[in-house]
Computed example of a mutant assay.
Amino acid sequence: MTAHKNVPSVLSRAGAASALTLAAIGGTMLAPGAVPEAHAAAHSTKALNIAASKKGAPYKYGAAGPSRFDCSGLTLYSYKKAGKSLPRTAQSQYNKTRHISASSRKRGDLVFFHSGRSVYHVGIYAGSGKIWHSPKSGSVVKLEKIWSKSVWYGRVR
């Protein structure tokens, strides 16, 4: 078995054969844990696109779609359509997400606006410092620049 001499001994014969087969056909192997991250990224991208598709939908307190939304209703609806469940309120959504730093944020992550320890608003990060959100009564779902430094970020698991 000298052909496998450079393959680390921690790989089983099947694992080594699979790795060598993938390398021979130009495939790639993901590190352990990478598949759930990639899966989460697919859900968040889909949720972001769903939120964007609701551009212009009117705000209505307590509404969670499909044609009217409040802030957490938009995030709930978007992620539900993307195959993930979230609680109903912005605070509960914050409590359920994996908290991440601003430097780690990615498109599709949730942006939580807070006063002290209380979350009062949520949107979906769109990149370039902007969010899709349903801001307030009399307004509509729109893309807007993040206007506050009092924000936290969360990644839906």
Rank of each mutant, 00 (worst) to 15 (best):
S9W: 13
S9P: 11
S9L: 15
L11W: 12
L11H: 08
L11S: 10
L11T: 11
S12D: 04
R13D: 15
A14I: 09
G15M: 06
G15Q: 03
A16I: 09
A16N: 08
A16M: 09
A19F: 10
T21P: 07
A23Y: 08
A23G: 12
I25Y: 08
I25K: 05
G26P: 03
M29F: 13
M29L: 14
A31V: 13
A31Y: 11
A31I: 12
P32E: 07
A34R: 03
A34W: 01
V35W: 12
V35F: 13
E37G: 12
E37Y: 12
A38E: 12
H39S: 15
H39Y: 15
H39I: 15
H39P: 14
A40N: 11
A40Q: 10
T45W: 11
T45I: 13
T45C: 12
K46T: 14
A47T: 01
L48V: 09
N49F: 05
I50C: 03
A51N: 06
A52Q: 12
A52S: 13
K55C: 10
K55Y: 13
G56F: 07
A57D: 04
A57W: 04
P58S: 03
P58D: 01
K60C: 09
K60Y: 07
K60M: 06
Y61S: 08
A63F: 02
A64N: 11
G65M: 05
G65F: 01
P66R: 01
P66A: 03
P66C: 04
S67K: 12
R68P: 10
R68G: 06
R68E: 12
F69Y: 00
F69R: 00
F69T: 01
D70C: 02
D70M: 02
C71K: 01
S72D: 02
G73L: 02
S78Q: 03
S78M: 07
Y79G: 05
K80S: 13
K81H: 11
A82S: 07
A82W: 01
G83P: 02
P87H: 06
P87E: 05
R88L: 10
R88M: 09
A90R: 01
S92F: 08
S92E: 08
Q93R: 02
Q93L: 00
Y94C: 03
K96A: 15
K96C: 14
T97Y: 04
R98V: 15
R98P: 10
H99P: 09
I100G: 04
A102C: 10
A102Q: 08
S103V: 06
S103P: 03
